[in-house]
């Protein structure tokens, strides 16, 4: 297998309008148009989508799972961001 492999693309599908695109998996393709065609044939054979995004996997910037705790730490101690932090006195409604 000395020949260069086609690049890897990540595939995101919007299942119907009103919903966000969601990661479906990946495919290999020589170029962007082929990536869309392959994504359609691989992931939407049963009308699972109305819109497809493809992006070269090498272009995705991701957080590091080994650093998850430290990376998300700033949100951990701010429980006052949640409405359940506040006490609501008896008799107060619609708050």
């Amino acid at each position: 297998m000395s020949k260069k492999e086609w690049p890897l693309y990540e595939v995101f599908i919007r299942s119907k309008s009103g919903l966000s695109h969601r990661h479906a998996g990946s495919i290999h393709a020589a170029d962007d148009q082929m990536a869309l065609d392959h994504a359609r044939d691989t992931y939407t054979r049963r009308s699972e989508g109305v819109s497809i995004w493809v992006v070269r996997s090498s272009q995705i910037v991701a957080s590091d799972p080994a650093e998850t705790a430290a990376f998300f730490e700033p949100a951990e101690d701010k429980i006052y961001r949640h409405p359940t932090f506040y006490e609501i006195p008896d008799g107060v409604e619609n708050l």
């Binding site: 020949k3 086609w6 020589a30 170029d31």
Partner: peptide, 12 residues
């Protein structure tokens, strides 16, 4: 596969 790669390289 090779032709598709060559085409993609040319387009780029």
């Amino acid at each position: 596969r090779e032709a598709a790669r060559a085409y993609a390289d040319k387009q780029q």
